[in-house]
Write a protein that binds this DNA or RNA. Structure first.
Length: 197
DNA sequence: AACTTATCCAACCGCCGCTAC
DNA sequence: AGTAGCGGCGGTTGGATAAGT
């Protein structure tokens, strides 16, 4: 692994600690749980592995399609994308994108449009900046359309036949998170709405 | 069977925004 | 206004394992 792997005992201690004290206050978790891990490691382990309802295994075609659509709208905002995929973590989505989808993009035929899309990809891969906020999102969306088409063509026919409305509908089964709409959610929905026009 | 290469994914790192002081 | 501490995020790393030769 890319670091020191968590042991079963550490997992147990962390889980028990969070069950007892709840999430948040991550700076206290290592002390409370008696772990020699930093707050970030504890938080990551919980979010990506120990949290209930984590979905494991490969991504379904619908999920892949949704990731592509959301990425075209949001860029590399993995946590936001993962929030629309029940049981999936930002790390999962990010890994899947880096391992599968970005490679497909790079291997796609290099027409002028594709090159434009690739440029958009590069732009979206830049470190976080205020540009991640909504003002540029629409521009990114239009630049991503060629890539989206390439990806959809590689999917099965039934997935390719999915209407944008279907995807928007998929967003609504978000477990738990749907009750907690914030400003990002609003912007995100506006993007989806605009994209479906 | 042994070795090399590619792929996957858990974990770490550094940065950012927010908040309290 | 400045700053320290925190939670959170995205990018990157590197070990395990599968696939290929």
């Amino acid at each position: 692994m890319g670091g020191v792997a968590w042991t079963e005992e550490e997992d147990y201690l962390l889980k028990k600690c969070i069950e007892r004290y709840g999430e948040g206050k991550w700076h206290r978790i290592p002390v409370l749980a008696g772990l020699k891990r930093c707050r970030k490691s504890c938080r990551l382990r919980w979010l990506n592995y120990l949290r209930p309802n984590i979905k494991r295994g490969s991504f379904a075609a619908e999920e892949v399609n949704l990731i592509i659509n959301l990425h075209s709208l949001l860029g590399n905002r993995w946590s936001l994308i993962a929030g629309r995929l029940p049981g999936r973590t930002a790390n999962d989505v990010k890994n899947y994108w880096n391992c599968h989808l970005s490679k497909k993009l790079n291997s796609a035929p290099q027409s002028e449009d594709d090159q434009t899309a690739a440029a958009a990809t590069t732009a979206s891969m830049k470190p976080r900046s205020p540009a991640h906020a909504s003002p540029n999102t629409q521009q990114e969306t239009s630049m991503w359309e060629p890539f989206h088409d390439v990806q959809v063509n590689q999917q099965s026919k039934e997935v390719a036949a999915e209407e944008p409305e279907t995807l928007v509908g998929d967003l609504e089964f978000d477990e738990g998170g749907s009750s907690k709409w914030d400003w990002d959610d609003f912007i995100f929905d506006m993007d989806l709405w605009a994209a479906s026009l």
